[in-house]
Design a protein around this nucleic acid. Sequence first.
DNA 1: CAGTGAGCGAGCTTCCGCTTGACTT
Length: 661
Amino acid sequence: MKLIIVESPTKARTLERFLGKDYQVLATMGHIRDLPKSKLGVDVENNFEPQYEIVSGQKKIVAKIKKAADKAGFVFLATDPDREGEAIAYHVLASLNDGRRPKKQTNISRITFHEITQSAILAALEKSGQVDQDLVDAQTARRVLDRLVGYKLSPVLWKKVRRGLSAGRVQSVAVRLIVEREREINRFSSQPYWRIGGEFIKGGESFGAELISKKGKKYQTREKMALFAGDYTSSRTTIKSADQAQEIINDLKPPFRVGQVDRKTSRRHPYPPFTTSTMQQAAYRLLNFSSQRTMRAAQKLYEEGLITYHRTDSTSLAKEALVAARQVIAQKFGQEFVPDEANFYKTKTRVAQEAHEAIRPTDFNRSQADIARDADRLYQLIWRRALSSQAADAQTEMIMAKINSGDYQFIARGRRLIFPGFTKILKMSQDDERLPDLLLDDTLESVKFFSNKFDTTPPPRYSEASLIAVLEKEGIGRPSTYAPIISTIQGRNYVQKKEGRFVPTILGQVANDFLAKHFPKIMDLPFTAKMEEDLDRVANGKAEWHKIISSFYQPFIGQVGEVEEKAKRVKIPVEKTGQKCPECKKGELVIRTGRFGKFLSCSRFPDCKYTANYVEKIDGVSCPDCGGEVVIRRTKKGKHFYGCSHYPNCKWASWRKPSKN
DNA sequence: CAGTGAGCGAGCTTCCGCTTGACTT
């Protein structure tokens, strides 16, 4: 009997099925040892020695693994093939040896595989090795750094801003992005601009064109980044008033002659299959799922064996899956939809660890999941995306015709689908845009000219999806943490969602400004990228983890001490409501935050002691029992729920947000 | 499922990343 250790219980079941009765497979369910929660747990005086202990709630599993290992003839550590997985393997090894790594590993070895297929697992069992101490050291450095940053910075906030706050390498940068975006929006001043269009006729067929230049000098036709913040560095001419637009229109005279016609075939390559991040972004865009809801649905699909692992940063597919996808495409859509060679995708994010496959159906023949509704809808996205990633390119003929009129030049664009390719599977093929058959020197009849007003728009607030996209691009956070980050920064009341997008609270801005002023290095976007470079050097045996941490910690802790001593406590401005105090009738009602959340009180406190509950209303929905307003309330434990504003007259309440009507 | 509340200063709060359950309308 041989014992195999993996991280996920679903994976354990799959392996047992592949390997039969000679193997027992147990799951660690994540990390089994970690730093203590209630104290720093890093001996900064003694070479940053981490004080690991068994994670509370994991004691049973550790005991079970120990017992099974004693009985087994051989143990394979098959945790995920990445930095965290190597660390888990190390901690299992250490747990089996009373907390220490044995000098010699006998009857125990480390194996890795990137795909959960029978062939990959059998190959891995043949190629066993030892736990890679350099990689473990890199993880230790990561863990210790995050603990030092989090547990040293947070108390500074307790002292200087408000009790109970938190700061960290990831969450603080996420908040910063939202705060800075809001300020960019506030600074923005919208500028109107006009675009001029014309309708022409050839052979009885009418079509539209847009004015693009005068004497070769181009007009502003689309909003460009240069227009943000009123910065006119663009070389284009902007039409700034309706009068100016009308003058140009009055100036347009026949003949209207076709000057140039370009036809070219554009090929569009399919999209790579989903990673966690792109799946969350697509589910938000197409299904309006939050990242948490997406992950809950994905978890269900994974546990049912319908998809591969859903926390991944890889876009590669197992060989078996490539073959299967090509077969299914041929069978369902036709051989012409199968490219000559399989499509491969490079991972864009530099920090990707690619421990798993991309997210894909385990069986491409199954186009529906038919379990829970959310899960089924998500499954269909995954199926389409993974399958289409192996389909042929889409081909479109693009037609661009220039039309001259004196000094002025118009452009007409047409589009004709030649071959849908992958877009047929993704269900995203665009309609053709017809143009009559225009030839050089054709003279056209004009029907009318018109102008349309546009306004430059500020950059949008972040949604969950767009925030996660930026974090991933900067290498901040991991597939397993994107959804939790979103709930942390809201739970700390640093940001709130307004119409599905993030707005910083006053507290968020104050805490962010404090950190950005005193700890600019940590709040900087490249901080994590630099950390990752250092960790790579540790993993490759080119740097020593204690030295990396020490060179960070010495200046950092000096700065912490200085700020604790010198920085003034920050006053958090109160939010005004614009309503008069009903008791003294002199002060204004303001929203304050106490130990139990927000409440209303008089601005003249302590002279006037009026207080009232602050209720947050949900727009657009009403109480299903009495038609009153729906408000957010909290239980004694602080959990949110939805109730009726007419309480206690109406006792309606719900955990879930009531839907419209 | 529905309190109170800021100001005093007891003892408390806090990180990131890996994994699932167990509690409910």
